[in-house]
Write a protein that binds this DNA or RNA. Sequence first.
DNA 1: TTGAAAGCGCTAACAG
DNA 2: CTGTTAGCGCTTTCAA
Lengths: 344, 344
Amino acid sequence: MTRGGGKRPTIYDVAREAGVATSTVSRALARPERVNAATREHVLRVAERLGYHTNQLARALPSGRTRTVALFVADITNPHFFGIIRGAEQQTRAAGCTLIVGDTEESPELEARNIERLSGSVDGFVIAASRMSDADIRKLGAEHRLTLISRQVDGVPSAIVDHADGTGQIMEHLASLGHRSVVYLAGPRRSWLATQRWKVISHSARELGMAATRLGPFPPAVRGGAAAADAALARGTTAAIAHNDLLAIGMLRRFADRGVGVPGDVSVVGYDDIFGADFCSPPLTTLAGHFAEAGRRAVDLLLGARGEAPRGRGAAQVVLPSHLVVRESTGPVRAGAKRPEKNL
Amino acid sequence: MTRGGGKRPTIYDVAREAGVATSTVSRALARPERVNAATREHVLRVAERLGYHTNQLARALPSGRTRTVALFVADITNPHFFGIIRGAEQQTRAAGCTLIVGDTEESPELEARNIERLSGSVDGFVIAASRMSDADIRKLGAEHRLTLISRQVDGVPSAIVDHADGTGQIMEHLASLGHRSVVYLAGPRRSWLATQRWKVISHSARELGMAATRLGPFPPAVRGGAAAADAALARGTTAAIAHNDLLAIGMLRRFADRGVGVPGDVSVVGYDDIFGADFCSPPLTTLAGHFAEAGRRAVDLLLGARGEAPRGRGAAQVVLPSHLVVRESTGPVRAGAKRPEKNL
DNA sequence: TTGAAAGCGCTAACAG
DNA sequence: CTGTTAGCGCTTTCAA
């Protein structure tokens, strides 16, 4: 409640004024078809006149359905999550529900605590880029309605953008440009994406006859870029794949400061195609995906829309397509470029 | 409620198990000082053992205090609002409350509807860049707990960044570079900021002996940049002030496409210093402010923290400092630059 | 300090 | 189709 000068009218007020029982008012409001058309009209008119609005809290108490869903993101500062938040917000609103957003600051403890705190006040949780362990997520998934974004765990519904396939695209792109070595600047240790991506990178590298090195972890933010760029340089690689665009942009800046040419001396690739990826210098080659759509689907999954499979065994695992956006931060290996050093 | 395999324990369960009355349990939980230390300990231990968690819904029903605040932003896509959202989220969480965010899509109707819908489910509202009329806001402010961000209305608490003073800084900066004319690419018609800024621009222009023209409105987004840039060009101005950084970045892109030099042919200034303003080309001169702090203060105002003045007459109007970040999108007028055309 | 009991506003049987 | 009557889980007088 915000504040009622003279108290907001309740169904009791409407009932008295309309000369009917409260249950009739309740039905007229929530189940119009189960009330005589005439009385319904009458009740509605009285409610209107009194300025009645149903108290969602009171409505939720008996049923336990709050029509609210909570979304947690690992870092609300990262533009990448904007798309997810926006999609989730749209879909939640479309379903007549309300969205709560929380920042878990890359902390699995904070994730768990938030869920604990909000449990009972929301109908379910959507977690984007969860840093919790598979086991903890599975446990939480058994106790609460829960869907994941950018993370897959058996038995828990999820929506991700196909970064595995996308990472393959990145590797082929680099190989076709003549790169013989690649460095992956990894994200947080607990990041599931980081693990998955490295798997694909190292596997593809073997197939393509390239050398691949994993460095890090680095904070997936612009400020992590300097250290990441320096580390990549120390390896003498010709191609660097950053954990995300934020890190890539930070690297671009560092390379510029150090007089290292991009893509002349080194090619740089990012993930997410965030706002700014198209106008940084040079514009960034990056893996794009419909993250707003991922947000929407995750909410759908949670709310049980679209006839999506339930949780537990056979929980729906939505995989959205990704595509590589080639811009100017990647290019052919320059003739006479340094040979990659040995993969330590 | 999410879902309880075997029902979540209630204070009744705890009371029975602990051999006390429910009211004692309630007190032990909410007013520890009003219960005997020994019984309190005992009750707490039992609650712990049973895995009891208070149902916030049930707690809110009698009191009407939901410990939840709603934040509405005009466009959740705009990075500018990220800072505000983040600050609001932090402060809300610090106060032990929960934040709901909503996108009002630049629509005053949607603002009003959202407030109506959530009224009763939240303790108050924070609206950033409201598009409603002063009268409507004042009315809403009388009926609900409400604070504003980037908008001032008599009698309603608010937190803004000092764009009036900041706009003066912009004008002086341009004047000192030798500009004799300036164009303001205005934001949405209903934008209070747009009106305020134009007032300062036209006033400063008179004082500084410059010509000033207002063009627009333009959508305050990157996509609005092309039309804005073309309009500015048609005026033959040497300096353009965009309603926000998004629009400015869009203009930069258009100028580049058309071969117009920035700042050689025309200087460009934006507002907000959003993510990306420092690495677009050229890096953007823009008015910066602590928007996260504005978000924090707005929540403080709402929750009545910091001993801030209440609403009504003398409602607190927090004004945060702004400062001009001079980058490379502004520069001296080139010798032999086109003369500004007559101000129509 | 503790217990009994009356709600908060709405929904959902169960009768009529 | 409509009214009566229990609750939902917690807080809060009012007594004891």
